[in-house]
Structures are given as structure tokens and as C-alpha cells.
Amino acid sequence: MVEPYKDLIELAIPAKAQYVGVVRLTVSGIANRMGFHYDDIEDMKLALAEACTNAVDHAYSGQEGQIAVSFFIFEDRLAIRVSDEGNSFDISSVKQRSGPIDKDLPLTSMRERGLGLHLMETLMDRVEINGGRGVIVTMTKFIHRDEVEQDVDSPEKTKSHG
């Protein structure tokens, strides 16, 4: 059984680069309200911008189109779905083509070789990509509250027995 989400926020933007910033601001506001740490919010903004930029650059090949961004709010995580109805792609061939990152290559060359996908997978806890009619990228980030163990610095643990 799939766990129901608490809230759903949906956004539809034109597949144009100038609207990617709107999506970044939206995820920042949602994640901040949910209690994510600053670094996790920055990671989500970058991963989401990559997913949207991929849709802008590849989905519609210069034609008009829309990108749908859905934010599924759960108690312990935020799942973000970016979907378009443009050109699909073969995820396994992109991964195979990307290979190891070569720091001597220009950034534009690395982007064409799947750097955006690598970034999304590195910055998010879970990334799923489905093709077919368009592309659907679903990225999930879990809220990590109080990662420091309780009682680590308590006097009882640090007291020397002598």
C-alpha cells in the first residue's frame, strides 16, 4: 500500500529557462516550511533546477511546451515530480555515455554527457526516471532531524573513571 501524502502543491511552467528560478523559489519555500536544513534545501534547489533545465533543453526541441512540477509533502520527506510531454530518452544509454566525470572536459561537454543526472542522484536521497510519452523525474529528500546522537556529550559519557 502506498503511503498517502499530507499535501500536494502543483506548478505548471512554460518550458523556458527564465521560469526555472520560480521552481527553485517554490521548493525553497516548501522545504523551509517543512523544517529541512539549509544545506538540504540548497541541494534540492540545485537538483530541481537540473531536472527542469533538462526538460527545457531536451523535451520540446525549441517548440512550445509545459513542465509540470508536483511537490508531494509527507511527514518525513518531500517528493518532487518533474514531468513533460516532450521527447523521451533512454536513461541507460545516458548513464552509459556519462561514464566517470572528467574534470578536464568543459562543463558544457560534461552536461551533455549526463552530469545533470549525476548531480540529481548525488544531491537527492532517491531519483526515479520514467520515459514513455515525455519524461517523469521523481526525486525524494528525507528530513534528517537531530542527526547528532542523544547523550553523546553528556557528562556521564565523558567523565573519566579514575
Rank of each mutant, 00 (worst) to 15 (best):
residue 108 T to G: 10
residue 71 F to C: 05
residue 100 P to E: 07
residue 41 I to N: 01
residue 12 A to T: 09
residue 106 P to K: 15
residue 136 I to W: 02
residue 11 L to K: 06
residue 37 H to V: 12
residue 31 A to D: 00
residue 66 Q to Y: 14
residue 130 N to Q: 12
residue 113 R to A: 13
residue 91 I to A: 02
residue 25 L to E: 13
residue 83 S to T: 01
residue 83 S to K: 03
residue 9 I to E: 12
residue 66 Q to P: 00
residue 134 G to P: 04
residue 13 I to Q: 02
residue 156 E to A: 15
residue 138 T to Y: 09
residue 129 I to N: 01
residue 22 V to M: 08
residue 41 I to S: 04
residue 48 L to P: 04
residue 84 D to G: 03
residue 52 C to R: 01
residue 37 H to D: 04
residue 86 G to T: 01
residue 34 M to R: 07
residue 135 V to F: 01
residue 35 G to Y: 14
residue 148 V to M: 11
residue 52 C to Y: 01
residue 38 Y to A: 13
residue 11 L to F: 15
residue 131 G to M: 08
residue 64 E to I: 07
residue 119 L to E: 04
residue 52 C to P: 02
residue 61 S to D: 10
residue 134 G to E: 03
residue 90 D to G: 00
residue 100 P to R: 08
residue 26 T to A: 13
residue 13 I to A: 11
residue 46 L to E: 04
residue 105 L to Q: 15
residue 131 G to C: 07
residue 79 A to T: 09
residue 137 V to F: 14
residue 152 V to Q: 05
residue 21 G to Q: 08
residue 153 D to Y: 12
residue 33 R to D: 13
residue 70 S to F: 05
residue 77 R to S: 13
residue 7 D to F: 08
residue 56 V to R: 00
residue 65 G to Q: 11
residue 108 T to K: 11
residue 12 A to L: 10
residue 24 R to E: 09
residue 120 M to P: 04
residue 140 T to M: 04
residue 47 A to F: 02
residue 70 S to M: 02
residue 11 L to Q: 12
residue 103 K to Q: 06
residue 67 I to E: 00
residue 103 K to T: 03
residue 156 E to F: 12
residue 130 N to H: 05
residue 107 L to W: 00
residue 112 E to M: 13
residue 155 P to T: 11
residue 98 S to C: 09
residue 15 A to S: 12
residue 67 I to W: 02
residue 35 G to L: 10
residue 98 S to R: 14
residue 67 I to G: 00
residue 46 L to F: 15
residue 42 E to G: 02
residue 57 D to H: 05
residue 137 V to Q: 01
residue 76 D to V: 10
residue 161 H to S: 14
residue 53 T to A: 14
residue 58 H to N: 09
residue 124 M to T: 10
residue 33 R to Y: 09
residue 161 H to W: 12
residue 123 L to Y: 05
residue 92 S to W: 02
residue 22 V to L: 07
residue 148 V to F: 14
residue 118 H to D: 13
residue 33 R to M: 07
residue 161 H to A: 05
residue 118 H to Y: 14
residue 152 V to P: 03
residue 1 M to T: 08
residue 85 E to A: 11
residue 104 D to T: 15
residue 45 K to M: 06
residue 40 D to K: 03
